[in-house]
Computed example of a mutant assay.
Amino acid sequence: MILGGVAVNAAIFIVNDLNNRKIGVYNRRVVKAVGGKAVPILLTILSTCFGLIPFIMEGQNEIFWFSLAIGTIGGLVFSVVGVFLALPVFLWRKNGVR
């Protein structure tokens, strides 16, 4: 649930910025929307990953928290790929005009 929420909110954040940009070629607006929202999205993901590092440091002593931290960090790293690579590909238009 955490990972889906972060990835979906990041995608909504980017698409909203894209919809607010009205001037220019569509594909350039996609690149600008993704680039413009990259810093806040990455800061959110990185702060969550760094916040979970103490649970990894405890190691095998706390099985639940260790597994939760590893799974969450792995999912967040994968969501970066989805948000910054897959989403722009799906938003990209062949002729780039609209």
Rank of each mutant, 00 (worst) to 15 (best):
V97N: 12
F78M: 06
R21I: 06
L42Y: 05
R28V: 05
W92D: 03
L91T: 03
L76V: 05
A7K: 15
R93P: 02
A10R: 00
G5A: 06
I73A: 07
V8L: 06
L46K: 08
L76Y: 02
I63V: 15
A7N: 02
S67F: 07
L18H: 10
R28Q: 14
V80A: 04
I2N: 06
I41W: 07
I23F: 13
N61I: 10
I56R: 11
I14C: 01
G59T: 07
E62W: 06
G24N: 11
I63A: 15
E58I: 13
I63H: 12
K37D: 11
G35D: 15
L85G: 01
F84C: 02
S67D: 13
L43F: 07
N27L: 08
G35F: 07
F78R: 01
A10E: 00
V8C: 02
Q60N: 14
I45H: 05
G74Y: 00
I23V: 15
P88H: 00
N95K: 11
G96W: 02
G36Y: 11
G5W: 02
F13Q: 04
T72H: 02
S67W: 10
K32L: 15
T72P: 04
R93L: 13
I70H: 05
I70P: 04
T48Y: 10
S47H: 08
I41N: 15
Q60L: 11
Y26S: 09
E58G: 13
V80K: 00
K37S: 13
N16G: 12
L42D: 02
A38T: 10
G75C: 05
V97L: 14
M57S: 12
P54Y: 09
V77K: 00
R29W: 10
V34R: 10
R29L: 08
P40D: 10
A38K: 15
N61D: 12
G5M: 09
P54M: 10
V89W: 05
L46H: 05
V97S: 12
G35W: 04
F84D: 00
G71A: 13
V83I: 15
Q60C: 06
N95Y: 04
N61F: 12
K22W: 05
I12G: 03
V34D: 07
D17E: 14
A86W: 03
V97T: 08
R28C: 03
A86M: 08
G59E: 10
V97Y: 09
V6N: 00
V34S: 09
I23S: 07
F84W: 04
L91V: 02
G59F: 07
G71W: 08
V30K: 11
I56S: 09
W65T: 09
F55W: 12
T72V: 14
E62I: 07
S67R: 13
A33Q: 11
G71T: 12
P88L: 03
V25H: 12
G4K: 03
F55I: 02
L87N: 02
I2E: 06
L46Q: 10
F13S: 06
F66R: 11
W92I: 04
V15S: 06
F64E: 08
Q60V: 13
L85P: 01
G36T: 11
G5H: 06
L91Y: 01
V80S: 00
T44P: 02
G36E: 08
A11M: 10
N95I: 04
G4T: 01
A38H: 11
S79D: 01
V83Q: 01
L43E: 14
T48A: 15
F50Q: 09
N19I: 09
